[in-house]
């Protein structure tokens, strides 16, 4: 019994059940397939984590965001009059997280690629783009660059899904994707 010592003095010398060996074999094959899927998707798939990130001071990042907003601002939106920014396709796009806002509102075009920069000025935040359901962690001091290509159009919410204090649930930003021609 499992609560008594095994029959053999050295447990490694005990015989093995046939069904177990078969199952171990099947499970091992499955484990190897699961492992292979990850590098394979990096080669063949289109949804992969970017490996591009830079150390940056929060005020330096904020300066970049301000310059970006200044250059491409097309309007204001929402209760907080957040600037709306329409950057050209293929360009560097900056999104800033802080307690408790996403800044600015981005206007993108469907089917075009953008180099999206993400960083926080204070605590950890979570970039959760809904309903596309893309979730990325946003750190202070790290400028993370992700190349994104919206494949659907409409209004998207950016929810903060990393707990960041008492105003966490009010931290909601927006990305608008204009339908492709």
């Amino acid at each position: 019994m499992s609560i008594f010592p095994p029959k053999e003095k050295i447990w490694f010398n005990e015989p093995v059940e046939k069904a177990e060996v078969l199952w171990v074999g099947i499970a091992l094959v499955w484990a190897l397939i699961m492992f292979a899927m990850m590098p394979l998707w990096h080669l063949k798939g289109s949804q992969n984590m970017s490996n591009e990130a830079y150390r940056i001071q929060p005020d330096a990042y904020q300066a970049k965001v301000d310059a970006f907003v200044e250059k491409f601002k097309v309007g204001e939106e929402g209760k907080a009059k957040t600037p709306v920014v329409h950057p050209p396709a293929g360009s560097d796009v900056y999104l800033q997280a802080r307690l408790w806002e996403w800044y600015p509102v981005l206007e993108l075009e469907q089917g075009k690629s953008y180099r999206l920069h993400l960083s926080s000025l204070d605590w950890l935040h979570g970039f959760s783009l809904q309903p596309a359901n893309i979730n990325l962690e946003v750190h202070p001091g790290i400028d993370e660059v992700v190349t994104i290509t919206p494949t659907t159009s409409g209004e998207f919410g950016i929810i903060c899904n990393e707990y960041c204090g008492i105003g966490h649930h009010t931290m909601l930003g927006k990305i608008r994707v204009l339908a492709g021609k």
Partner: peptide, 10 residues
């Protein structure tokens, strides 16, 4: 790694 993009912190 990749599937986690849809799941992390939800």
């Amino acid at each position: 790694e990749q599937i986690n993009i849809m799941i992390h912190n939800t």
